[in-house]
Structure formats: structure tokens, C-alpha cells
Design a protein around this nucleic acid. Structure first.
Lengths: 143, 143
DNA sequence: CGTATTATTGTATAATTGTATCATTGATTG
DNA sequence: CAATCAATGATACAATTATACAATAATACG
């Protein structure tokens, strides 16, 4: 069994592309310590089969992480955790991830006809009212 | 201890295939005089074990060098330095090596969206500003 | 010695793994 | 509706590894 079997949960209904979902979740697993330096990730084909997607999509996620030097992909050999990000890096990655999420939120809101200002306002109110269950328990897989 | 133990440094993250890295570095060692006519190279398995790669990858590097007559591989016997390149040959090899590096640089820059002109400009500036530590001290091994 | 046996060395071929390129699809935009 | 673009898929490819093999050397034994 590979090290992150069942730990990647995709939401095929999300507008978030699945290659980003994969990349972000792997990033989080590293930051949580579930994946450590030197660990081998599943091959693109393994993971693709498990997630029932094309292996090129996994490859794209891996390439993204390779560019940030979080992992190392080696043709013919496999893919490995390359560096455990230091605090600064973690912060940067978190920031970047957040920004992507934020951008998507605004974009989606825009589709629904809301201005950024409106989207922000709604967000604020939501944050104040329902302060329960906003933490990160494991989510259910969707498809 | 074999004659080039620790003298081959691989970068598994490079897009340069490791069989080429090996071949080029052996070539350089011969040109530098670290390897002389008649010297035996480590067996494919020895070197593979040291570098933590498959011996077929070493074999491929050896085959490459065998084809240029720099070394002689003999099944069941081993691998030996075959001829020390004369000055003309050395010059040619150095030139070829540099061209390969240049090509690679441009290719990588291209992937990042830079035109050759931009890549060249950046290179120029870099060369002017930081003229320190551009020599060839031994590099750190990567994985 | 001579020969059989075993170990050592490089080689050939197929399987595995990531990559590059182009095609398809579905949504967005004008 | 056509054009366009991003995400995903299909296909062919390149690097590396796994496995079985062939040639040579080293050793054992008569």
C-alpha cells in the first residue's frame, strides 16, 4: 500500500482543477508531517488509477510541486519528497495556496454576479456568525 | 577503493540524464589527468552501487564512451581507459561539452518563458555582478 | 597441466516510470 | 453561435530499472 493511499480526496464537482487539488493536498501532507524527506510518492500511474483519473493529470500536479522543489520527479525512477520546507517556505506555500483559493472564490462569486466587495462582505459576516466547525476535519470523498 | 570513488557527482534533479552526467564526468577526469591510459574503471556494478543507481545506467554511460574510443569495455574483463585524447581531441571534447551546457541553459530558460535574448542578457549581468566563486570547486552531492 | 565449476564482468531485452505533444471537452466570452 | 482557452485525456516517447544471459577469469580437483 502506498504512503498516501486514501489520503487524497478529490472533489470532481469543484471548480478547483484536480491537478491543483492533488498538489495542495500533498503539500499539506508534507507540512503535517505525514510525508517526510525521501519518501517515495506513488507513481503517476498508480495514483491515477486510484483516483480514477488520467496519469497526465497526476504528472501535472507533480510537476507543479517539483518546480517549488518540494518533490523531485525522476524519469524512470520515481517521485520523492525532496525537501521538508522550512518555516519560511511553509509560510510562503500557505500564502500562495491561500491566494489561489481566494482568487477562485472571487471568480466564482463573480460568476454569480457579485462584486468583490459583496463577496468580501458576505465572507466577513459568515466568519462572525458561524464560528463552529470551520476547522479541518477530514472531508468525505465526493464524486 | 576504486580510482574515481567520490569523484562522480550526480544531480538527480537535473534534466540531464544521469548516464550522460557520468559519461561527461569521466571524460573530464581523463582530460584533467585523473585517469590515465590503462587505468581500470570500476565495474558497472561497483559504480552503480556507489551511486545508488542501476548498473545498466552505468553500462550505458560506458557504452557511450566506448563508442568514442575513450574507454574499452570488455565483457567478463572490465573497463579500461583506452586512449588519452590528444590536444586536438581534448579541445573538441571541451567545446562539445560547453555547447551541450549552453543548449541546456537556453532550453530551461525557454521552459520558464524566456527568450534566448533574455536568457543571454540575464547571464551577462550575472557574470558582471558576481564574479566570485564561479570556479569549479567540488560540488555537493544531491539526491 | 587439463578441465570442470563457480564467480565476475559486461550485454540484451523487456518492464517501469516520468515527459512531451497533440486531441478532446466543456465552459466562457464576444 | 463561433472563437477561445483551460483542464483533461490519449498516444508516443525517453530514462531508468529488473531480469536473464554470455564471455571471461578464478578456483578446485583429478
Amino acid at each position: 500500500m502506498n504512503p498516501l493511499s486514501g489520503k487524497i480526496n478529490l472533489d470532481f464537482r469543484s471548480s478547483e482543477p484536480i491537478y491543483l487539488q492533488i498538489a495542495q493536498q500533498i503539500q499539506q501532507l508534507v507540512m503535517k508531517g505525514d510525508l517526510k524527506l525521501g519518501d517515495q510518492l506513488p507513481t503517476v500511474r498508480e495514483m491515477a488509477t486510484e483516483l480514477r483519473i488520467n496519469f497526465n493529470t497526476v504528472s501535472r500536479a507533480y510537476r507543479l510541486l517539483d518546480e517549488t522543489r518540494l518533490i523531485s520527479t525522476q524519469r524512470g525512477r520515481g517521485t520523492y519528497i525532496w525537501e521538508e520546507p522550512d518555516e519560511a517556505m511553509k509560510q510562503k506555500l500557505r500564502q500562495k495556496g491561500l491566494e489561489e483559493l481566494a482568487l477562485r472564490y472571487l471568480k466564482e462569486a463573480g460568476k454569480l454576479g457579485y462584486t468583490p466587495a459583496e463577496a468580501i462582505e458576505t465572507l466577513k459576516q459568515l466568519a462572525q456568525s458561524g464560528q463552529t466547525s470551520l476547522s479541518d476535519e477530514d472531508q468525505q470523498e465526493e464524486r
